[in-house]
């Protein structure tokens, strides 16, 4: 199978779906770049290069560089979705959704319910998330718990190029509003990605590794750290299962509960802040439904309850890493042997 970057996988998904379905459009700031300028057109292809080449292939009616007016263009995407298009809006950093929450939370998310099931809102909002790029408090958050909290939204966090492509295709074909979050430090990661189109259903976790001693559940970039931790632990004779739920809403509770029943020791890794986050959410689901199988308290490895700092040493301390994950697994193993 061909090796491709996470970025290229997403780009292919957009090319496939725009080619297949003329109602798919993309819009966002500098998703082409160079508009109205003297030099190169499609100069950026998005701040992270994900939408490169779409302008040339599909033209400016369907590939729209927007003003810096997130409320207007995200809301327009929601309005277009409910009237016959399948818009994919790009917001460079999930943090910027702060300026257009209403259009997401009160509008797109609720049309279907408020209108008695009559609305279909096939709307995708792509945004980057995550710390580790020395971009400080307003460009580094992992806000997926906030979106997960809102009924009506689906929330996707791919961890590999393969998943990125299949999940984005699913997001575009899906008839509900989808928040699609891309960790910016994964764009250059490479993996096997088929050339053709394929969709990965939402709510189906990926079990990356099976081991009988403990389970590590992680999202996005944290999946890679979880994998690293299992290598460290394997050398110590601790064999772990790694589960990547891939979507936080819907959440594959079955797979999570099955693995909790099997290993009885669970560590949940979440790069978001700890309060009301995914780690807290999943641990409550396990505590409620698989309490009898637990051999140790569920451990959470998360960022602290602070904004993301700028200084590299502080930011490194902020983020979970393989060492902290391995330490948490050792703790669950040591509990009532």
């Amino acid at each position: 199978m061909p090796q491709k970057s996470f970025r290229q996988a997403l780009n292919e998904a957009l090319h496939h779906e725009m080619g297949r379905d003329p109602t798919v459009i993309v819009l966002g700031e500098d998703i082409a770049g160079g508009a109205g300028a003297s030099g190169q057109q499609d100069a950026w292809g998005g701040a992270f290069g994900v939408t490169k080449g779409l302008l040339g292939a599909f033209g400016p009616l369907r590939v729209r560089d927007t003003p810096i007016s997130e409320s207007a263009f995200v809301g327009a995407a929601a309005g277009a979705a409910v009237t016959g298009l399948r818009p994919v809006a790009e917001i460079m950093f999930v943090d910027f959704l702060g300026v257009c929450f209403d259009q997401i939370f009160n509008q797109a998310a609720k049309f279907r319910y408020m209108f008695g099931g009559k609305a279909v809102t096939p709307f995708v909002l792509r945004a980057t998330y995550g710390a580790g790029t020395r971009s400080a408090s307003q460009h580094s958050q992992a806000l997926y718990p906030i979106f997960t909290h809102v009924p009506g939204l689906k929330v996707v966090i791919p961890s590999s190029p393969y998943d990125a492509k299949g999940l984005l295709i699913q997001a575009i074909r899906d008839n509900d509003p989808v928040i699609f979050l891309e960790n910016k430090l994964l764009y250059d990661t490479v993996g096997e990605v088929p050339d053709g189109a394929y969709a990965i259903p939402f709510g189906e976790a990926n079990v990356l590794r099976e081991g009988g001693d403990a389970t590590i559940i992680a999202f996005g970039r944290m999946v890679h750290f979880a994998q690293e931790a299992t290598a460290i632990l394997a050398a110590e004779g601790i064999d772990c299962t790694v589960v990547d739920p891939r979507t936080t809403s819907p959440l594959d509770e079955d797979t999570i509960l099955e693995t909790a029943e099997e290993t009885g020791r669970v560590v949940i890794v979440d790069e978001a802040n700890p309060r009301c986050g995914m780690a807290a959410d999943i641990s409550s689901i396990i505590a409620e439904n698989a309490f009898g199988a637990l051999k140790a308290p569920i451990m959470k490895v998360t960022a602290p309850h602070t904004p993301v700092p700028y200084a590299p040493n502080l930011e490194a301390a902020y983020l979970p890493d393989a060492k902290r994950i391995a330490e948490a697994v050792r703790k669950t193993m040591a509990y009532r042997k």
Binding site: E29, G34, G36, A37, P67
Partner: peptide
């Protein structure tokens, strides 16, 4: 004249 890579003439 610019917001990032987009000319203001294009968006204002």
């Amino acid at each position: 004249g610019f917001g990032e890579a987009t000319a203001s003439s294009f968006v204002v």
